[in-house]
Nucleic acid binder design. Sequence first.
RNA 1: CGCGGGGUAGAGCAGUUGGUAGCUCGUCGGGCUCAUAACCCGGAGGUCAGGAGGUUCAAGUCCCCUCCCCGCAACCA
Length: 637
Amino acid sequence: MKEKFYITTAIAYSSRKPHIGNTFEVIMTDAIARYKRKQGYDVFFLTGTDEHGQKIENCAKEAGITPKEYVDGVAGQIKEIWDLMDSSYDHFIRTTDDYHEAAVSAIFKKLYDKGDIYKSEYEGWYCEPCEAFLTDSQIVDCKCPDCGREVKKMKEESYFFRMSAYQDRLMKHIEEHPEFIEPEARKKEMVNNFLKPGLQDLCVSRSSFKWGVPVSFDNKHVIYVWIDALSNYITALGYNPELPETDAFKKNWPADVHIIGKDIMRFHTIYWPIILMALDLPLPKKVFGHPWLNVGADKMSKSKGNSIYADDLANIIGVDAVREYVLAEMPYLNDGSITFDNIITRYNTDLANNLGNLVNRTLAMTAKYFDGIVPSPASENETDADLKACVKKAYDDMVAQMDSYHIADAVETVFSVFRRANKYIDETTPWTLAKNGDTERLSTVIYNLLEAIRVGAVMVEPFMPSTSVSILSQLGTTVDSYEFGGLEAGNPIGEAKVLFSRLDEKETLEKLEAMNPPKAPAVPVPEDQEEQIGIESFGAVELRTAQVIACERIPKAKKLLKLQLDLGYEQRQVASGIAKCYAPEDLIGKKLIVVANLKPAVLCGVESNGMILASGEGDQIKVVFLDDDTPLGQRVR
RNA sequence: CGCGGGGUAGAGCAGUUGGUAGCUCGUCGGGCUCAUAACCCGGAGGUCAGGAGGUUCAAGUCCCCUCCCCGCAACCA
């Protein structure tokens, strides 16, 4: 009886087509799933789409179609790319699937009946346009920190999950299962930032939008993403608390590993385990958070217009080359990066030169010296023994690397087999043996070569499945053992064909660049467009010109600068979150616009009397500067 | 003093429990001709961020201090 292995990706949010960074997760998970299958496990590989929520409701509205129509389109696109990339998932779940919605509804009900979910009057501040609940410390002068509009004191009813009740149990579990969260650094982040300070109860319903699974006993609310999306890992197996346990669930749960992006560690290592505890279900054995794939040094994002898509890339270099590239390029902990030069280099060196050419020259020799028949090996010498030892060692290394999720290292290890085989050709010089008529030795050498390639092809299968099949078929075999000696002498090899022809650097670079033209980033329609206001509302904001007379960093805050402003008729201190974009000395002497009648606030212990005007966010902030001869203290309208 | 991860040849990275610095790419030189201008060998290139710090017979590897980068959190008026 095979041991089971249940592996999952996070479900992809269906608001838009996934880029190569999103696609990486499926490729990585697929590589592990394929590897485990070859190791003899009965693998269940789950992936799918997360299709509810405000954002999708908005996207659909903008597109003028229903949310369901919208997600049908995007989910189809996602599935197409997953399929194109040869991902061998066993089930593709959509959170809009009937069985999932029914199960989520039942799960919510069960947790409510148990008392883990309770309805509460959320008392506090609420920004309607932003649909955000705010704490006392977040609001400024009764205004929303994001949009600056009035917030309402609100008694909003909402459902909350009693996270705090499970905190100690979760802490204990993490301590007792050091392998539960990987990489180790991520575990520390979770424990130190969230668990140790203490968990807040989690708001698990929304009444501000409709596109979700309704709370069965209170249809004003829909179930928010936590319970809806995370539950996919069990509902996909047929779990539903109101129904008898399915065989698939009994067999596969708990999951052996959830492969997820580093950005959603918190949901998978804190919320999800606690939901499971509340359901009296065992926890997944491992949650692995992988890093991101950047474009050069930049994060991939739609707003930067630098997104790269797996299907575009595959059109140029092929599916397996895309797989090999991202798997080999993504480090274990830190972010990886894509550059076009690198793609071409890796393709030419690893795939064309090392692997492709090896197979090609070996098959050519087999055809030339043995009429395409696998020769039979004779006695072995030291060179042969070393070749075999290297192949064996590579296999052992690969196993260790795959089992510890060091995928890039494992890819490198497999390619070392091909490199070793190339070296073996030079060590044995088959053409000389042929010339000298040393058929016995030549037979051995060619056999060993074919066999090293065969084992290498089997090892490479998790990373490049169709290449693996192609090589084996060229060898005229289907033997997929990792053991040396699988090929039967006397059998004919298959038809030789070029696996990876070298890419012309210039030509390919042009194609790659055409795929993602360096155009100005598209400016999406803003999501935060305001309602029209009268001139009197604008007039309520007192904008005045001012000059920076002093500026310094605020020690504990990475984003804040402390500015002393001269308004002509007075001086005041303002804190501003622009430290990432401006050095203090850049600002001194500059003239800018300040919101003069904003109520004071204290930020990181620094009093701030007003706000300076700037556009952008994150590390792209631009302060609105004035001409040097602008008088101070002037009203700006 | 919020927590954590890093700083190793031009680039990207390995270096398990401390024992003469490695890999891939690039570069320079050589070899070979079965092969996709491929393949193989060799050279150059690193005082392993800094501290003429500590422990040790021995430290990239452990401890201490400083500097820099990154992640998470906080913060973004």
